[in-house]
Computed example of a mutant assay.
Amino acid sequence: MYELFVLGELMTGEKHGYMLQEVLKKAVGLGRKISSGTLYPLLSRMTENGWITLREEEETKGGRTKKIYGITASGQDRFRQLMAEPFDAPDAEAQNTLRLKMVYFQYVDREARLACLKQYLRLLEQNLKHVSQFEADLIAYKPEPEKQRVQLLRVFDHRKRLGEVEARWIKDEIERIKERQEE
């Protein structure tokens, strides 16, 4: 996910490492942070792979060197490859990856956007089916203790409702993209 983020951000233009770190902190949401110890080794690997370039500038305040990163043609290819990669499972990581991909939809064609959304929708529908089946089993077999079973049914109701809302939004987004002629 971080590789996709870095390449996606660099598709918008050059950025220095600190700016990438700050934008990523805001993009992934509360409770999830990327440390310098994670970001800078990733940037080094991406530079070694030829996906990004590194240019150093001297900062005026404090005389520290500012590292500016840019994307290469190979990095743009890698970005498009990551945008086309399927999701592994309907989990929080897939949801975060979808959100990042959607931010960068402007850099891929319409078919890539639709494929991404449709594949994510299939995962949501599989998850909804799984939750509904487990819920039906709980209702049919009535395992004990009853208080726990009842609460577990409430949890599944919550998961189903969230999944249904998310699936509806994804379906609407697919239709919106299909209807837009200029893309």
Rank of each mutant, 00 (worst) to 15 (best):
E3Q: 12
E3N: 07
E3H: 09
E3A: 13
V6S: 07
V6Y: 04
L7M: 11
G8T: 01
L10Y: 04
T12F: 14
E14S: 09
E14F: 04
K15F: 02
K15A: 07
H16L: 07
H16V: 13
G17T: 01
Y18G: 14
L20E: 04
Q21L: 15
V23H: 10
L24M: 11
L24F: 14
L24Y: 12
K25D: 12
V28Y: 08
G29A: 06
G29M: 04
G31T: 06
R32P: 14
K33I: 15
I34M: 14
S35H: 07
T38F: 10
L39M: 10
P41K: 09
L42E: 03
M46A: 12
G50T: 05
W51A: 05
T53E: 08
L54K: 15
E56M: 12
E58W: 06
E59A: 12
T60C: 05
K61I: 07
K61Q: 09
R64E: 07
K66G: 08
K66I: 12
K67F: 05
I68L: 07
I68M: 05
Y69R: 09
Y69H: 12
I71P: 03
T72I: 07
A73D: 12
A73Q: 06
G75F: 04
Q76R: 13
Q76D: 13
D77N: 15
R78V: 07
R78H: 10
R78A: 11
R78N: 11
R78I: 12
F79I: 09
R80K: 05
L82C: 03
L82W: 01
A84N: 06
A84D: 02
P86D: 04
A89D: 14
P90W: 00
P90T: 08
E93N: 13
A94H: 00
T97R: 07
L98P: 03
L98H: 01
L100S: 05
K101N: 09
M102G: 04
M102I: 03
M102P: 00
V103Y: 13
Y104M: 00
Y104H: 05
Y104W: 03
F105C: 00
F105I: 00
R110Q: 03
R113D: 01
R113L: 01
R113M: 11
L114Y: 03
K118W: 03
K118H: 04
K118A: 05
L123M: 08
L124W: 02
Q126T: 06
N127M: 12
N127L: 14
N127C: 11
L128D: 01
H130T: 13
H130N: 15
V131P: 06
S132G: 10
F134N: 13
F134H: 13
A136N: 12
D137V: 13
I139M: 08
I139A: 02
A140W: 09
Y141K: 15
K142T: 12
E144A: 15
E146A: 14
E146D: 05
Q148L: 15
Q148H: 14
V150Y: 11
V150G: 12
L152Q: 10
L152D: 11
R154K: 13
R154N: 08
R154E: 13
L162Y: 10
V165I: 07
R168E: 02
R168V: 00
I170K: 00
K171Q: 04
K171T: 01
E175A: 02
E179K: 03
